[in-house]
Design a protein around this nucleic acid. Structure first.
Lengths: 146, 146
DNA sequence: TTTGAAATCCGAGGGAA
DNA sequence: TTCCCTCGGATTTCAAA
């Protein structure tokens, strides 16, 4: 990781399909060198993957909710594994208080929230309590620190 | 936007460098058709851009926290504007309970959380109460529904 | 590590169905 | 729309520095 790698990461973040040639001429190095550096960054796990940013406004009928889930200690891994597999679960954290897990969920509606998440979860052995926070308006959203 | 477009979006999200040929054979359509559909998705603004996901662990020791912020009604827009400008604030939602705003924050440390977020916020006129939930372990993170 | 050159592969567009 | 085909350009490999 040096300045050149940093520049490559910055440019690819801006445009993940930038060609090796263009990157190379911008950085003053050969395309094949760019290629090798990108390979190294991938293998080192610094570049996790290439992806696309989808305009969420196109799929606006979504509801964001946050759950505080309290679990009995011996069932923790089971509950964790269960939530890992739920497609509506966007993020899952272990926390200290006020629950054991803190979950960010995206669903189409409150009906779907109940049917896909709350009911299956609350029926699961070891789930003691779920507190739900429902967002009524998204004010800001970004993935990286600004 | 049909099922094929949806599948293209899903695959490109998983691997933004997937070739038209591979996408095509997976979907049972010709590469050139894939190409044209992707062009349409870009022009329609559904695909905003191609990018990379960078492993945040490589750069910083980050701490994720969630805040429930209760605010006096007449100062709500001021507090909202203030939080919009904080670079550590990744997401900001208006909610019904148990606060008025629900905030996702990323910082380097608890020290930074206090210095950059909690202290400035709690000093702001109209902020009545802040509850903080600190994540101790990230179990899952994705941007789109799986 | 970096490079240029070579080989292979792919994107991008035209035209026909 | 979709597919087939083609060519110009890109990716990727590799020997050498």
């Amino acid at each position: 990781m040096d300045d050149i790698d940093g520049a490559i990461l910055r440019e690819l973040q801006r445009d993940g399909r930038m060609s090796m040639a263009e990157l190379g001429s911008q950085l003053g190095i050969a395309p094949s060198t760019v290629f090798k550096r990108i390979e190294k960054l991938k293998n080192a796990g610094i570049i996790e993957r290439f992806t696309i940013v989808i305009n969420q406004k196109c799929f606006e009928h979504t509801l964001i909710a946050f759950l505080n889930v309290r679990v009995t200690p011996e069932k923790k891994t089971d509950v964790e594994a269960f939530m890992m597999e739920l497609p509506s679960v966007l993020e899952l954290y272990e926390v200290l208080e006020p629950g054991d897990f803190f979950v960010k969920v995206r669903v189409q509606s409150i009906t779907e929230l109940k049917r896909e998440v709350l009911i299956p979860l609350s029926g699961l052995a070891g789930v003691r309590d779920i507190q739900t926070i429902i967002a009524v308006r998204k004010v800001k959203e970004q993935v990286q620190n600004g």
